[in-house]
Each structure stands twice: as C-alpha cells, then as structure tokens.
Amino acid sequence: MKRVILPIALLVSLATAGEQFAMSDADRAMYKEMLENNPADIYVEEGGELLEENLGGEEALAKFLGVSEKELPKYIAGFPRYIKKLGNVVGIDQVLQAMQVEQGKEKTKLKDKKMFSMLAYVKSLANDEQFTIDINANEQIKASYDLGKKTFETARGGRGLSCLSCHSKDIVGQVLRTQPLPDLGEAGAGATWPAYRMTKSSLRTLQRRFQGCMKNALLKVIPIGSKEMVGLEVYVSTLAQEKKKPITIPGLKR
C-alpha cells in the first residue's frame, strides 16, 4: 500500500500557526507521529480484503468497468464518472453496489463503514495519479459538474449560508472560530479523502465530509449518493485537479 505524503507546506503552516488556531503543540506532535503511521491504513487494508472476498478483487472490478487491470488506476482517477450501464454519473461506492447486485450479493449501504473502507481501497489504487476528470467528455458529466457547482453556490438553511460563503477565493485563510478556512483546491480536498479524521477518530469519505460542513452550518444534510452529492464531489475534485494535486489515500485530517 502506498503511504500518504503530506505537503511540506501544510506541515509548516501547521507548525507555525498562531495561538488562535485549534491545534495545540501536543496535537501537532501527534499529527506528525500519525503521518508516519496513518491509523486509516488498516481500514484501507480491510477494504482491500472485502473487495477481494466479496467481489473478486481488482480483476473483477476492472472487468466490470471494461478496462484492463493496468488501466485501472488512471480510470479510477476519473471518478465520479458516467458509467453507461449504470445510466448515471456515479461514485466508486455506487459502482461497488452495482457489482454486488450483479453478483447476487447483498448491497452494502453507501454510509456503511465497510463501504467507506472499500471505497478508500479502490480510490487508493489511483494513488500518485492526478485526477483525469473530463467534464466535457459527455453531457452527463457536464450536467453533474454544473449541478455540483450550483449546489456549492446555493445559499440555504437556518443561517442562509452556501459552501461558497466559507470557501470562496476571497476569504480563504481567514479564521472562522479558530479554524483557518481552507482553499479546497490547494488543500487537495478531492484527492485526500477518504481520510482519517483525527477529531472523529474514524475514516470519513469526501461526501461524508460535505455532510459535516452542512450540519455545522445548519444546511439541511443531504444524503450520500444523491445527484447533488455526486455533483459536489465532481466539482470539488476538479478543484484539486486544477491544482495538479495527486491522489493520496488515505488522507489525514485534523
């Protein structure tokens, strides 16, 4: 399994961040230690075993997707993508569900921890690759990107906020209660989830992370796998793609 290499810049900024930030020196020491040994590695490994035992491993996955095993990493780096036989732009997790159904197995729920592990494993096959999402490849992916961008910019909920309220270019780096607002592209968000979330002591996926922001900001939390969520994932992943951030799974987050 490939290990996550965290950008030096991030480490430096964490190390020099002032008092007002939430990370204490002790936290930072723990963070450094965890970098060497990401607790999520075991979930990724478990995901690989589940895929092997439950579905026939990479070979079966490549076959299902109609690519060779050699092409698999680059192909995975293009997710979420339009899969004709599924009729939609889908995430890796939804592909795994379809494989389960095709093989007569019980479908694992999208929000199930086992699904998070399998998703993390499959995405880690594309480690070190850059995203290969082509939003002009077909009208379906174009529509998904547009819906994702729209969802990102739609103000709603009890405080009238949108994702853009806190993640627009003009306020990146400013401080929201002790948290510096990240540039989602620069942070490589799309390329570093599934990640181990230290504050939650668990493996979380990108869509699960979106739900976290929705809950905190009082936006009605929408379900994983919905067209809007997949669109958000497409949109946020292209932000990492524009910044040429390589896929590094599992990530490690505060």
Binding site: L86, V90, A98, A155, K227, E228
Partner: peptide, 24 residues
Amino acid sequence: VNAADLTKAYDMPDASKMIEKDLL
C-alpha cells in the same frame, strides 16, 4: 436481465426536494 437491471442496482436518493425546501 442483470445488465438491464443495473441502472437501478445502486442507491441514488433524491435530494432535490430537501434542497428546494431549504432555500434562502
């Protein structure tokens, strides 16, 4: 039969109504 079925083989819950009701 399976090939035809796969468009419904995965979960894709509807969120559009939730968002509609939540708009500012």
